[in-house]
Design a protein around this nucleic acid. Structure first.
Lengths: 216, 216
DNA sequence: AAGCGGACTTCTGTATACAAAGCAGCCTGA
DNA sequence: TCAGGCTGCTTTGTATACAGAAGTCCGCTT
């Protein structure tokens, strides 16, 4: 594996998990030393982060980790809604029913686990990622996948703005189950409706649980 | 201006205008010599092209210019439709009426110019780009703008698959006028409908006028 | 004659050295 | 005392040299 790929993955994970919080200056020599590589591959990693919107280049001062604001989250969902709906519609038309039936059952089990108090938030988000991946695969559209990937990257950071409580997680599991079921049944409009409901609730929860906006 | 930026812009324009046709191998040393720069900034330019989807990295063999296929165009429009509709809806809700009234009039004038036989295809596409930019600005959503930019890049190349005739250009001008009018009136659903009609016709024209698919 | 193996060639990936540009801090002059 | 400019220092941007890997071509073997 290339050093620039490792650097990119490492920095990306650090930013997504807030180990490198917004506003952090990513100086080339400093980060290169930290990751044990030279400046050349590090620069490539940084340019990828900038292209992705996770960092911004300040002329003459290096790149800084970009911020996540509440207004930005609203913008994010304005684009997510039509895109996720389109993905769900396509997936419903082209899906393998068995795969989405299985996912629906797993979301039902996850709901039971959450309500019994034994939930693992990390595992739950991994399951959500599985559903997203299954929809992407069923939609079979590289342009859609790429656009979704960009948005989901920013979504991961936005999640940290809200503190998920068990109630919301339980509701979310139910909404995801509905999405999986609709796709499994091959009903595009039902799938789009389920996605609309989920994203609407998700955004509302985010906006309601954030104390104050964080700067950029 | 940085050398890597110039190289990126130059290569991007060369690919979009088919001076570097699909399948062309972009060897680092060769391109660096051609552009009069060293390999380091050239590599950065190439990585940006790869991230954008205009080139693909073949391990051990450099990067090659990606192809445009008819199937790819269908995928492209599957994503364009929901995204452009969303942009039109947002623009209709947030627009400055005067700007879009002016654009509508210019499309009407362009239609008259086309039907009189004095059309300039390049100038017409520039006008279309102006409408796109106005919608982006009115929508005021950076995530949307970025996603659109990616798709439109590929669209520019796809246009070369079809040979535009004056009839299609005339119809296109009318459709764009309808979009501009709908946005000017502040009617989101009307704007989305106008966009749907335009994209549907546009894709149909593309698919009907292409003799055979080009490989990747 | 055809398939396989090895060495050569050429390419990318990485490191480092150099140059240029921006910023900060300080000094000087009014 | 404040404004302006200058110096030096840090930082990025670029070039080049080196190493590793992959592909290719030729020759050998079967």
């Amino acid at each position: 594996m290339r050093a620039s790929d490792r650097a990119y993955g490492s920095l990306r994970a650090d930013i997504l998990e807030w180990r490198l919080p917004p506003g952090t200056l990513l100086a080339e020599v400093e980060q290169a030393r930290r990751l044990g590589i030279s400046r050349t591959p590090l620069r490539e990693a940084l340019s990828r982060l900038v292209a992705e919107g996770l960092a911004a280049a300040h002329t003459g001062r290096g790149v800084v980790v970009t911020g996540v604001s509440l207004a930005g989250v609203a913008d994010l969902f304005e684009v997510r809604l039509p895109l996720e709906c389109a993905a769900a519609r396509l997936a419903a038309a082209r899906r393998d029913p068995a795969a989405f039936d299985a996912l629906a059952e797993r979301f039902e089990a996850a709901g039971a686990l959450i309500s019994s108090g034994g939930s693992d938030q990390h595992a739950y988000y991994a399951l959500v990622a599985e559903l997203d991946a299954a929809i992407d695969e069923a939609a079979a559209n590289p342009y859609l996948v790429q656009a979704q990937r960009q948005l989901r990257t920013h979504l991961v950071r936005a999640r940290r703005l809200a503190r998920d409580n068990p109630d919301r997680l339980l509701a979310s599991a139910g909404e995801h189950r509905q999405i999986a079921q609709a796709v499994a049944r091959g009903n595009p409009e039902l799938a789009a409706a389920a996605v609309t409901i989920h994203l609407s609730n998700s955004l509302h929860h985010l906006q309601a649980s954030v104390p104050g906006p964080l700067d950029a």
